[in-house]
């Protein structure tokens, strides 16, 4: 999913850079309201983990591979704004140290992988959380589904960039169909890896998972355990659904 130099024209690349800079400035603005001391090493770890997992290309259709983008994962762990910065750090390190992703395409790649995943994907996650019961399993499920949708959404964003600054060798609809088709399959891997990782962290330290900070079970553990009958669970689920 890393766009190399020259694939998209300079005007569109510059525009994407402007969007990326503006969005990241918003992400780090007023961080005293959204970052605490514990989140600094946690966000660093999330970035390092995403770097490692992005190296793990898994085979998809014949002769094609895919890898985690990580935007939804980062957003669920440390919040959408810090999460977008985490993935952006990964993209910059990849481009500057490992020659992966063009230097002139940094803005494009940050928009497609960091912003679409951590901001757009997180919006899907929050929407799913609203309709699912307030249980840890719901956080895992919502993060998996949102993560599965992030690569096809990134593919659509790439298509938009191609429409604006591509070489016009193929029609926009052809590019959209091919890109979304390939990334729907990659999305399954993204969803599984994200759900497994969120599940592991939520089991170990649920209070550190940003996207799990409004769970009933965490807020009143004794009452939650006492009220663990099928009837009350069903009732609270019904109430949650109506909200």
């Amino acid at each position: 999913m890393h766009i190399p130099d020259g694939l998209i024209g300079p005007g569109t690349s510059f525009g994407a850079s402007a969007v990326a800079v503006g969005a990241l400035a918003w992400c780090v603005r007023d961080q005293h309201t959204s970052i605490d001391d514990r989140q600094v090493p946690l966000a660093g770890m999330a970035a390092a983990y995403i770097f490692a997992v992005q190296m793990l290309n898994f085979p998809v259709a014949s002769g094609t591979s895919g890898h985690l983008l990580g935007g939804v994962l980062a957003a669920v762990l440390v919040g959408p704004r810090l999460g977008a910065v985490c993935v952006s750090v990964v993209i910059v390190v990849q481009a500057m140290l490992f020659a992966d992703g063009g230097l002139s395409a940094l803005g494009l790649n940050i928009v497609n992988m960091a912003l679409v995943g951590a901001i757009g994907g997180y919006a899907i996650f929050v929407t799913l959380r609203r309709v699912l019961p307030r249980r840890p399993q719901s956080v895992v499920l919502a993060s998996g589904i949102a993560a599965a949708l992030a690569p096809p959404l990134a593919a659509l964003m790439f298509t938009l960039e191609y429409a604006l600054g591509g070489n016009e060798a193929a029609s926009v609809t052809t590019v959209a169909a091919s890109m979304v088709g390939a990334h729907v399959i990659i999305g399954i891997g993204e969803g599984v890896i994200t759900a497994l990782t969120v599940s592991a962290v939520i089991t170990a330290r649920p209070e550190l998972v940003w996207g799990a900070s409004n769970l009933d079970a965490l807020q009143h553990t004794p009452a939650g355990a006492a009220a663990g009958t099928a009837a009350s669970t069903a009732a609270s689920t019904a109430i949650d659904r109506m909200r």
């Binding site: 020259g6 094609t64 591509g166």
Partner: peptide, 27 residues
């Protein structure tokens, strides 16, 4: 892990939309 081209590289090559691609400055 798999060394096949990723989704974007594959599509770009198939559809010849990568004709403008330049080598990375730090290749």
């Amino acid at each position: 892990v798999s060394s096949s081209p990723d989704g974007l590289e594959m599509v770009a090559a198939q559809l010849s939309i990568d004709t403008g691609e330049r080598p990375h400055a730090m290749d």
